[in-house]
Design a protein around this nucleic acid. Sequence first.
DNA 1: GTCACAGCTGGAAACGTTACCAGAAACGTT
DNA 2: AACGTTTCTGGTAACGTTTCCAGCTGTGAC
Lengths: 340, 340
Amino acid sequence: MIPKNMTIKDIARESGYSVSTVSRVLNNHPDVSEGAKEAVARVVEQNRFVLNSMARLLKQQQSTNILIIVKGTMNIFFTKIVEKMQHLISVHGYNAVVHYIDEDDDEVRLAGQLCRERKSLGLIFLGGNIEHFKQGFDQIDQPAVLTTTLTDELTFDHLSLVGINDADAAQMAIDYLLDHGHRQIGIIGGHTKSSYISKQRFTGCRNSFTAHGLDFDASQYQKANFHLDSAYRAAKELMARKPDLTALFCMSDVMAIGAMRALTELGKKIPQDVSVIGFDGIELGRYYNPQLTTIAQPQMELAEESVNLLIDHIEQQSKARTIILNVGLTEGESVRMIEH
Amino acid sequence: MIPKNMTIKDIARESGYSVSTVSRVLNNHPDVSEGAKEAVARVVEQNRFVLNSMARLLKQQQSTNILIIVKGTMNIFFTKIVEKMQHLISVHGYNAVVHYIDEDDDEVRLAGQLCRERKSLGLIFLGGNIEHFKQGFDQIDQPAVLTTTLTDELTFDHLSLVGINDADAAQMAIDYLLDHGHRQIGIIGGHTKSSYISKQRFTGCRNSFTAHGLDFDASQYQKANFHLDSAYRAAKELMARKPDLTALFCMSDVMAIGAMRALTELGKKIPQDVSVIGFDGIELGRYYNPQLTTIAQPQMELAEESVNLLIDHIEQQSKARTIILNVGLTEGESVRMIEH
DNA sequence: GTCACAGCTGGAAACGTTACCAGAAACGTT
DNA sequence: AACGTTTCTGGTAACGTTTCCAGCTGTGAC
């Protein structure tokens, strides 16, 4: 039997109470008799009645929605963070709505639109470009948290920032390789023009070389797009161009896995012939063969801090803040020491 | 500057037209003059006005929402399917809303509730238990597609089914190992009591042994929960109990990766010492070292068929159907032939 | 007997939109 | 000149809630 769409009015009629009372029962308001509660509950139960959230939201003029906007295709790294965020948000009694938007959508504009249209309480933006927000964030009139790469302590009016310092983190990776005696180092990363994160990490790499008094030559850098296959091809190209590389830094663990496959196919043993270091610290890296050495981002903390900041902002009207989290280096089996 | 919340009335006033006309412009209705279009568009642009979707949905009595409900924690296999579904749904002009619900939530009840509350057009259920739906699916009054493991050609009134035959697929895996000369075979899978999929695949395994005139002994089976770490531990336990195993079937690729790591740590070479076959056919398997041999589910087709079926159902009121897709065996490097 | 007050209830006005209806104006067609 | 017809427009009743306000009863205090 398919229950037809009932309204609160039908419940009122069937239970013998008024619309107001039914509404009060359904919202657990205090001033309502036990009799009414029971009668209404019975009818609701019988008909599996559910309030129309459109009408309710329209009337209340605000939802309990918190938007999570993720830029770019899903990847295993973001997915983990989103999952944690969703969980935390629902624990706080809110509703998480996730939106995946295209890499080339105007994130800021779209975000503002979605927010206003859905009357959400706030939004968390994952993987957005801080540069875009700098100019356009006033289009968003809800509290927002931007969870992405950060450099300096920017502060905005109602935009909080949570992230790591990607430049420093990447520098840590190259430092590690250099300290292990590697001098012929290849780098696989994103497009430094279009991807702000890649640009930051690229800067970090260069800083490391400079700090060690070494040159960094563009031919060491190979572009890929953060996918397995793209990194796989990039690694093959790079090795063809620079066969004497002894180490590879990949700007994501997923890319590191793609690259490692390529190296294996080329007959290169890891780390005996070529060392590999990744970035992100996904769980999978520890299960790869060999275990991946990587720069580990604090995934859970990124999620926690973002959600906490946003909810504080919503509930306490607290000021926007900027939180920069630390990364760590997880040693696996994919980097070896070179003796000179 | 934070634009205050405007309504269509404000736009009407500022543009000098009536509410009706503004509404018509915003909805691209035909009967409206160029002058009106321009005037309204200008005011809308100026104030970055966005229609209140609550009000609109309330009035229209239906949304363009299609719910995707995913049971259990996100995993790399489902994620890929969800991504594809979302994309297809938005291509068709609908709105995909993804909900992740807990393993132990009453999926059917929750689904019905969400659907009615949000007035969604339909829902796709990923990873649900068909047994639950058998008894409770009449709680759902929207067209629905259940994308999960299937056995026989069940037909429901407004519930379509898309899936593979997990028993046959698992049988294929064991057949493959047996045909490669393996006789000491371990299996890592989920709880056959609580996980319907695991139960199906378990049945398939047993069928294979029986068909080959072999016994299948419970000690060959080790329970895990479809996560890396759980499979890792399971593999270690299983190998401790049955050190002479020459092959391992894992009921998901992710578990296979967890298990392979365990084997590597135990000093077992894959496939020289132990062969491993997985299930799912995730992209990552091809990049693992060694490449994973696996039963490949048609991920993209699962997504496509599910979405097509649902949209057909919504738009054409077509009858519910059941589609069983074929799996394939992807040969990697993780299974070797044993000569007797 | 009046008053204050609590506990409970129903009526009705919003919330912001859409869609129906009616009507005005302009234009052809007879 | 009378008429359909097309093109455009504005008024307004819904949609299903919540919430304010007012009212009713009963109770206890003076």
